[in-house]
């Protein structure tokens, strides 16, 4: 089942002055349950592509379909609501709400979805257990390590039960152990619960775990490689 699809997606920054082609006719499809890395050198367009897939940025031309619905050209308020219901985000800098505890950070997105309070608290606790932070529920971001904060961010992204999760350089600020631990969690979520992950990264540890690697060069897809589960696990 196709979750995300792009058609001739292009993005040009400064079209009237010094045009920078960040994306050139990108056509990709992401199936449900994929664990995909978008890789490439700096400036290759991987973050721009991720932003387009998440509806955070508007393409110059082309379109993005999420779960069969065209999000390009969608009204801003509708797009925000669409993101709330369909897309999870994990940022490089964790971006947790500093005045909230881990539990509040995770449950906040469900509050925005107007979920039942009991269900919300159960799900929050379960997610924090899954990411190994059952004993850090009441800690605030500044009381946690980078790895722990990023795990809270993953729990938050999963909390809204999105169609897919976009993770922009999720391990870039983590030490090796934290990075491996985070990847283990995300891989397990993908494998056991079928959560679709799309990463932009140039971290080899992430690339090595991916089951599909889309390589970008100068805003265009240079390679799109499917890796077998066995190969990815080796």
């Amino acid at each position: 089942m196709i979750i995300v699809e792009t058609k001739n997606l292009s993005k040009v920054y400064n079209p009237d002055t010094v045009p920078v082609h960040a994306l050139r006719d990108v056509n990709i499809t992401i199936e449900k349950g994929e664990f995909t890395s978008i890789v490439g050198p700096s400036g290759s367009g991987k973050t721009t592509l991720l932003n387009m897939l998440g509806g955070l940025d508007k393409p110059t031309s082309g379109e993005v379909m999420v779960n069969g619905e065209k999000i390009t050209g969608m009204k801003d308020s509708r797009l925000i609501d669409f993101r709330l219901k369909n897309i999870g985000f994990v940022f490089q800098h964790y971006n947790l709400i500093p005045v909230f505890t881990a539990r509040e950070n995770v449950s906040f997105i469900m509050l925005l979805q107007n979920r039942d309070k009991n269900e919300m608290m159960k799900r929050t606790d379960a997610l924090l257990e899954q990411v190994g932070l059952g004993d850090r529920k009441d800690a605030r971001p500044k009381e946690m390590s980078g790895g722990q904060q990023q795990r809270v961010a993953v729990a938050r992204a999963l909390a809204s039960e999105p169609k897919f999760i976009l993770a922009d350089e999720p391990t870039a600020n983590l030490d090796s152990n934290s990075a491996m631990n985070l990847l283990d969690i995300m891989e397990r979520m993908n494998r056991e619960e079928g959560v679709t992950f799309i990463f932009s990264t140039h971290d080899q540890r992430v690339i090595d775990r991916a089951r599909r690697v889309i390589k970008m060069v100068d805003g265009a897809i240079a390679e799109d490689t499917l890796i077998s589960v066995e190969a990815a696990n080796q």
Binding site: G54, L56, D76, S77, I80, D81, R83, L84, K85, G88, F89, F91, H93, N95, I97, P98, I109, L112, Q113, R156, S160
Partner: peptide
Amino acid sequence: REIGMLISIGMSR
């Protein structure tokens, strides 16, 4: 950045 994040994850303006 924090407010940008809130809007990203679906907090209405």
